[in-house]
Design a protein around this nucleic acid. Structure first.
Lengths: 193, 193, 193, 193
DNA sequence: TATGAATGAGGCTTCATTCAT
DNA sequence: GATGAATGAAGCCTCATTCAT
């Protein structure tokens, strides 16, 4: 059973390992060998699954997107949009230690990819961020709040900003403080619930 | 006299060039040669002014810190703390095109340096960010607002977040939108002015 | 029946594909995968038919030899040796576009194999060329021309030379010009016909 | 004195080494390290003089062109064009052992480069061959022979062909035999001398 | 001080060949 | 037999750093 998964799963293993290692070490400081080791795959074999390092980075981005989609799907089960948003923020706070150490995966990746000339990989990163923006906007809209688009921008921007500060100052408490402020803000918004 | 200036000036030239090029290309993708070229200094000569690449990065950080100090000094001439804060935000909005293309210099540098193992260079980046935090806190305090510490965190966090989104989505308008929101927010704060 | 043919046919498919692809891309720039693809055979399967890449190259050489044998057999049906030789040259001229693009298959292969250290594969290439030399010598001898050996050398040498120039200068007209000169030369030779 | 040449001469050293090693081993089988070793230069340093392996190959081609120019300059001192051409052929015969082992430098290089996709390096090889064609044509024209263009093609074609056969069959005597035939042919041409 | 040149470690990628099913 | 996957040895190239003058 484990074996039947092996072959099909190796690609996945690599994606997961890439997502994690790239988040921790950054794109440029991470070698293919690093990822191969983390995935417990021989270096040469990586190229059977991904033609270039860039392809692996893209895969890591996709992995983050998938993770995010899984998270929002989870949240969508909550009946109330305000509660969904608050649960999202709660999740951020829960990740404060990771954020303090490595920052927001998508955000830091986006920053790094932006410096590359590679065709449109930065755009790809933007797309992942937009996933979150769009989901948030839907919640605000469902809530009946005015300017849901702008509110989403504010929320996600606040998240990226507090992640960055938390990371730069190595202080998880920032995440708590600003997270709670966001929770209050969400509560203060007029809306159907 | 010209000569004594020259060598002192070369060091400065390198710092300025480093700050600019590192902001645009990122730390890892920038070579010593890139910076040397931008500063119009022969490659071999760089090492007379900076022992290692890391030292150059540090210098770039210091350059950013100096620039920031110059900016806040400028703002400090304004009589009213609320106006100072609003002028700061106005400056951010004015930089929207740079932000869309390259992000916030200090923020992106901090993100990249965090991924390095090098001794404490990430801390250094944090220090630059804290300069801004401290200045903002002083303004809020002078304004008589409650929790000036938290307000500074919110303000600077919002700046970093909106810079990141602006950059990731390549849309300067985000900077305008969120910047205006911050201006309104500053106006809404209770205070002595 | 279909199946028994299949596996025998696959070997042949690979030989034909190898001959073609190696001619076009050269030995060193051609990968096993290239040949496998051209032959529509899974990569891993190639090794059931040929132990090494070298064996495939040898097979391509044999394929060229076989092709050459088929050609001379065809020509041998002509009653007159002078006509046979002229028909050979006519065939060369007819191949001018291929020659302009890729050169003479045997000649270019010989040049490349000569650079290898591999045991005697260059000798093998020489053998294929000698097939042609020997056949030409027989025709000259049958024609009663003096020094048939030397004439064969001159004829085949001229062919290799004009192929190379045609290829290097990418000009098929060279093949026509020099081919016609050879035809005149053959006509001018004293002989029984 | 030797030292003053060192720095300026290193580029040249590399060109000469490249020309020789590439002739012997072929383009694809030759590594940068091979050339670096032959030139007694550390591998990493090669890239200071030549940006890529292709650039080195180009340089080798230029070296061959230079060598050829030197040769024809030498020949141009002879008063009679027929003698110049005969001296050229004599030189070819004199090189028979090299030809038997490695073929004609320009010809084999042209064959190999033709298989590459690299931008126009094959054309470059053609240009070197054309140098020889043009020189020969000038001699035939000066001799007053009809169709000097065609005669040059015949002469150089014969050279390439006999080099290839000599190399493929590993028999220097072919060079002697065909070389002498060319000498007779040159003598038989009507002309002013 | 100034500078072109030198050095070598390390990263990405390709590919012939071998395995496991 | 058949086949996708695995493996590791090179090869090309970049670059921080050091040297020699």
């Amino acid at each position: 059973m484990a074996d039947s998964k092996k072959s099909a799963g190796k690609r996945r293993q690599l994606m997961v390992a890439a997502a994690q290692v790239l988040h921790r070490q950054g794109v440029e400081r991470t070698t293919i060998a690093d990822i191969a080791n983390a995935a417990d795959v021989p270096v040469g074999n990586v190229y059977y699954y991904f033609k270039t390092k860039d392809a692996l980075v893209q895969a890591a981005l996709a992995e983050h997107a998938g993770h995010l989609a899984g998270l929002t799907d989870e949240l969508d089960r909550l009946p109330d949009p305000r509660e969904r948003l608050k649960a999202l923020v709660g999740g951020w706070i829960g990740q404060r230690d990771v954020a303090a150490r490595y920052g927001c995966p998508t955000g830091t990746l986006a920053v790094e990819l932006d410096k590359r000339e590679d065709g449109g990989m930065d755009v790809e990163a933007g797309r992942v961020i937009r996933l979150l923006l769009d989901w948030a906007e839907r919640q605000f809209r469902e809530l009946g709040a005015p300017d849901p688009d702008g509110l989403a921008l504010t929320l996600v921007g606040a998240y990226q900003g507090m992640s960055l500060l938390t990371n730069a100052l190595r202080d998880p408490e920032i995440m708590v403080r600003e997270g709670n402020r966001l929770l209050d803000w969400l509560d203060s918004l007029p809306g159907d619930s």
